[in-house]
């Protein structure tokens, strides 16, 4: 990713949300992006997540220049290469956990039977094998986020993007979620985490901080292992 700029126009004024960001993320890296609100971290996340395209600059994802692709190709990349975990879970309401997890595979054209099997497998992995038919309203926040993680990993992505994944959770369930993300990282999946909490960033092996649309620090660290205080339910 080189010299990424994203300019928003609001009437006559131009807002430089990203003013030249260059960043290389290796396969299997666990990266945390930090910054206060308005620092451009969400914009950067959107561009990394192929939800937005930079105004200028180049972005190679897995060797492919994606910054100029059309919306359909971007949708395919999001579907096949990326997995998303959001702060507010973004599960479909009144839809069972299993069906939520199946969703990305629906758009990938996976046959129904295989979808079901993989959804069950992913939910079992996050410890929700017994709650396949529960709707989000019937699950706690931590459980909902675990469903969301299952949904992110079920498509076998290369990269998981987690935007404030613990923002709506208490500290104990936050640890659970971070443990799961670390587990994915250990399996060789690149994890990009956006957070404004240093405690959460501590679980990452590399932390960059943004301010005013620019990277101000970029350092590697020994990550804190997320240890579960008690056995999972």
């Amino acid at each position: 990713m080189h010299d990424i700029r994203r300019v928003y126009r609001m009437g006559d004024t131009e807002l430089h949300a990203l003013a030249g960001v260059s960043l290389t993320v290796e396969h299997g890296e666990f990266l945390a992006i930090m910054g206060t609100s308005g620092s451009g971290k969400s914009t950067l996340m959107n561009i990394i997540g192929c939800l937005d395209r930079p105004t200028s600059g180049t972005y190679f994802l897995d060797g492919e220049e994606v910054s100029r692709l059309d919306v359909d190709r971007l949708a395919e990349i999001r579907n096949r290469v990326l997995g998303f975990v959001f702060q507010n879970f973004n599960l479909l309401p009144r839809t069972s956990a299993a069906e939520n997890v199946e969703l990305p595979m629906v758009y990938a054209g996976v046959p129904a039977k295989e979808r079901r099997e993989r959804a069950v497998e992913a939910l079992t992995l996050v410890g929700l094998g017994g709650r396949l038919e529960h709707t989000p309203a019937e699950l706690s926040g931590g459980q909902q986020q675990r469903v969301a993680i299952a949904r992110a990993i079920v498509g076998r992505p290369r990269v998981i993007l987690a935007d404030e994944p613990t923002g709506a959770l208490d500290s104990r369930t936050s640890v659970e979620v971070m443990a799961m993300l670390q587990a994915q990282s250990d399996r060789g999946i690149t994890v990009v985490l956006v957070t404004h909490e240093p405690d959460v960033a501590a679980y990452a092996a590399r932390v960059i901080s943004l301010r005013d649309g620019k990277i101000v620090t970029d350092h590697r660290q020994t990550p804190v292992r997320a240890v579960l205080e008690e056995a999972r339910a």
Partner: peptide
């Protein structure tokens, strides 16, 4: 929001 989620997960327009 549902539309947004579907799009993020790979739904094309």
């Amino acid at each position: 929001r549902e539309i947004g989620v579907r799009m993020a997960l790979g739904a094309k327009p």
